[in-house]
Amino acid sequence: MSILSNIINAAKEVVEVARTTAQGMSVTLSHIPQKKDTVSYPDEPVQIYRRFRGEHFLDVNEDGKERCVSCFLCAAACPADAIYIEGAEDPRPYEQRASMDHRYAKVYQIDYGRCILCGFCVDACPTDAINHGHNFEWAVYTPGELVKDKDYLLGNKWREPDVTPTEKQRPLAAKQKHDKFNITLK
């Protein structure tokens, strides 16, 4: 009696396992032909919303002159104290200097170890010099590497997927040695 019931129970179990597996697999298999929500990053670019607040870029005007006039307002607005600026004067005429105004930022650093990507700096900027880009790739080996300097932030503009430099901006864009960001914009 007991041997028989044991056999019957074992058989029931086998059937049950087979059934649930088939049930589970049916869900899984039904998704295979469907459109996927994940991308196989980094082999494929990530798609990002335009209003995503990623790593900043420092902008230049249509003539390729740095827009930042080193007014320190972004640093003043920053709740995380992430921005450090040193101002300086470039007395050369507009054509020769790198910046829009005589006053420019000699040093401009953002510490992404501190930045909370709140966007206050972008709001504060009177010349639209600082903007959020869409980069989020920050993995580094030391905290110091999270402090990004002015050249890096200026270069970020040309790494954005949908930026086409104007005639005068082209030399700047060409100088940029980093790759384009691995993203597309939604």
Binding site: S70, F72, A76, E86
Partner: peptide, 9 residues
């Protein structure tokens, strides 16, 4: 002092 700092800093 020109362009060196801001008073609030």
């Amino acid at each position: 002092y020109k362009y060196v700092a801001r008073p609030w800093d």
